[in-house]
Write a protein that binds this DNA or RNA. Structure first.
Length: 408
RNA sequence: GGACAGGUGGCCGAGUGGUUAAAGGCAGCAGACUGUAAAUCUGCCCGCGCAAGCGUACGCUAGUUCGAAUCUAGCCCUGUCCA
């Protein structure tokens, strides 16, 4: 459908909308005034990764369209563990870890959203603040009466687990109730009317919508984004070395930049729309590039996303490093560095030292497979001794490069 | 509490006394081809060691055996059904 509100138009044309509880209703509401909307984030790690970036960007769009983003940190629900889409319970995290994670995750939001006290300024809340207060009897009475077990069993998060005969603890079973309670709580205390999330959150979101309607008679809305996979069908956010973390201290800016630079051709347009602020006509021009030309679009993508998440400076440095290493065959300042002793260093030690191999055995395999190079020259002998004295480029494969620098 | 089934390498999954560091698949790494893309083909894929070899590893613990992922006992955990 075509939307009248700038919010839904923006989300729609940029590709964020997968499911929406009541399109007409929300369109009308968003056209009338400021809509506070929230997205929940887990605090299982000290940083979010690119899998969450769609959600974060969606809050940014919300703010761009003149509404109020509410970032919900799952300080309480992380202690439960969302069973959605997984067969195993989450390991328990200590309170200190969760609090530390939340503090660390906060940094990325402050880059992408404007926080403050104004009507459309973003705010961050932590559901531990209210869930932690909840008495068991009180919860059962207030909320428990609105959920039937019959219906709870019908949700995918539960049903799939049962069908696969995988264990689900009562603790996890309660997750959807608590997430539903969050929505209702935010509606009541902060006039939040919309919850957004990934497509796997549909069930959880619906619960909040239902609960709010039943308890308070207020219509709130839910919106999910499409499941983001790369064109070759993989889940977004996992890559070679692990997750693509958003925080500066969790993944070097150069690696972050490279992740985007290496996007699949078919993903470029979609990613530009979702993850950058570039105007749509510019994106249309970039994604129309063919063959070798599309690489220019990937550089733009990498620059723009890095700029947003890591800052202007980080993006520039990463780009010039890439330019120097790939086009020039030289060395960029952003590459990983390892000290080269005056007497030189064995190839195996160098590869392990700089982090291109996790063990000596792996380094040897790399060498015997022909993937190791020093100064651009392939090294096929694992006894090779790298001479000391001069700065050298060391490579694993075509993409991983580093600098061996004589120790000062 | 009882009966039955199960717990194998990052994941899935074969293996029921030696030739098994453990088939096969996925994921991963590298090579070729390219465009730092995709697809495809090839090699590698527990650690240490130049190597012979050593050390770890099949839920945990004890045992049988020249030898155990494979047999026995106890324990822990999970599922299904029964109480």
């Amino acid at each position: 459908m075509t939307y009248n509100s700038s919010l839904l138009r923006l989300l729609d044309e940029r590709g964020y909308i997968h499911q929406l509880t009541d399109p007409e209703g929300l369109d009308e509401l968003a056209g009338k005034g400021i809509v506070p909307a929230y997205i929940g984030f887990d605090a299982t790690a000290p940083s979010l990764h690119v899998g969450s970036l769609v959600q974060i960007m969606m809050l940014r769009r919300l703010q761009q369209a003149g509404h109020k983003p509410v970032v919900l940190m799952g300080g309480g629900t992380t202690r439960i563990g969302d069973p959605t889409g997984r067969d195993e319970s989450r390991k328990m995290l200590s309170d200190e870890t969760i609090e530390a994670n939340i503090a660390s995750i906060r940094t990325i939001f402050s880059r992408l959203l404007k926080f403050g006290d104004g009507p459309t300024d973003a705010v961050m809340v932590n559901n531990h603040d209210w869930l932690g207060q909840l008495g068991y009897i009180q919860l059962l009475q207030e909320v428990g009466t609105h959920f039937t077990v019959n219906r709870m069993l019908s949700f995918d998060s539960v049903k799939l687990r049962l069908e696969r005969e995988q264990p689900m603890t009562f603790l996890e079973f309660n997750y959807m109730i608590l997430q539903g309670y969050d929505f209702r709580h935010l509606c009541k205390t902060s006039a939040v009317r919309l919850q957004m999330g990934g497509s796997d959150q549909w069930g959880n979101i619906i619960n909040g919508v239902e609960l709010t309607r039943r308890m308070d008679g207020i219509e709130v809305f839910g919106l999910t984004t499409p499941l983001l996979t790369t064109a070759d069908g993989k889940k977004m956010g996992k890559t070679a070395a692990g997750a693509v973390w958003l925080n500066d201290d969790a993944l070097p800016a150069y690696d972050f930049w490279q992740f985007w630079r290496n996007s699949d051709d078919r993903d470029v347009g979609r990613f530009l729309r979702l993850f950058t602020d570039l105007p749509l006509d510019e994106i249309a021009r970039l994604e129309a590039l063919e063959g070798n030309e599309i690489n220019a679009a990937k550089v733009v993508l990498a620059n723009e996303v890095t700029k947003l998440c890591r800052g202007e400076e980080a993006a520039r440095t990463a780009e010039s490093t890439a330019q120097a290493t790939f086009a020039g065959g030289g060395l960029g300042q952003d590459l990983p560095v390892f000290d080269l002793p005056a007497e030189g260093l064995g190839i195996i030690d160098a590869l392990v030292g700089i982090g291109f191999a996790a063990s000596r055995g792996e380094a040897k395999r790399l060498v015997s497979g022909g993937g190791a190079r020093v100064g651009g020259v392939a090294i096929s002998e694992d006894g090779y001794h790298i001479p000391g004295g001069a700065e050298l480029r060391i490579s694993s494969g075509k993409k991983k490069h580093g600098i061996l620098r004589p120790a000062a």
